[in-house]
Computed example of a mutant assay.
Amino acid sequence: MPGKLFAVALMGAALTLSGCGESPEQPAATDAVGIPGMKISNARMVLAPVAGNPAAVYFDLAYDGDRQVALNRAEVTGANSAAFHDYAEFEDIRQMQEMLPVPLKKGDRITFEPGGKHLMAMDVSPDLKPGGTTEAAVIVSGGKKQTFPVEIRAAGDER
């Protein structure tokens, strides 16, 4: 028994000593937030002309990733909720409606623009003011998130 205790103590000392000095090389950290191959540009939020109404977020999305993904949901910092919307015709009336998930494959380009696909931000904080910025995120099925800065514009500004 004393031999076993000595062996255990010796192993513990060796482990403690190996913690001193240089540490073993660690693998490079990877970016936990971001979707490989996705680039978002030209992002801007246009505030509603009436306080309390939703704001619209427009941007250009380019996807060159190797894996197929689907835009599933979104977030906007300073808004209680956000949802992708598009326009569709129903009974000869063009209406805005919530979008279903949008599949993306390598080479896809989508423009989120006035009169088309866009991101609605609901219950926007009064702290978000024209000339400022906020952050938005698109989330794909599976939960990966791509965040991006968004310029804030007044209702009458260029969209």
Rank of each mutant, 00 (worst) to 15 (best):
Q95L: 15
N53S: 12
Q97C: 09
A83V: 11
T77E: 15
E98P: 10
V69P: 01
A88M: 12
A74L: 02
E89I: 15
N53D: 15
Y63K: 00
V76W: 02
A82T: 06
A88Q: 11
N53R: 12
V57M: 05
M96I: 12
G78S: 08
A62R: 03
R67E: 09
L71R: 00
L100G: 02
P54T: 09
R67H: 02
G65R: 00
L61D: 03
H85R: 12
A70N: 03
S81H: 02
I93Y: 11
Q97P: 02
F90W: 11
A70H: 00
F90T: 13
V57L: 07
A88P: 04
L71G: 05
L100Y: 05
G65L: 03
R94F: 11
P54I: 08
F84R: 00
G65A: 03
D86G: 15
P101L: 01
R94W: 14
R67C: 00
A83M: 10
A82D: 07
G65I: 04
D92A: 12
I93P: 04
R73K: 14
H85E: 10
A62M: 06
A56E: 14
V57N: 05
A74Y: 04
D86Q: 15
R73E: 11
R94D: 10
E75D: 14
V76T: 06
V102F: 11
E91M: 13
A82W: 06
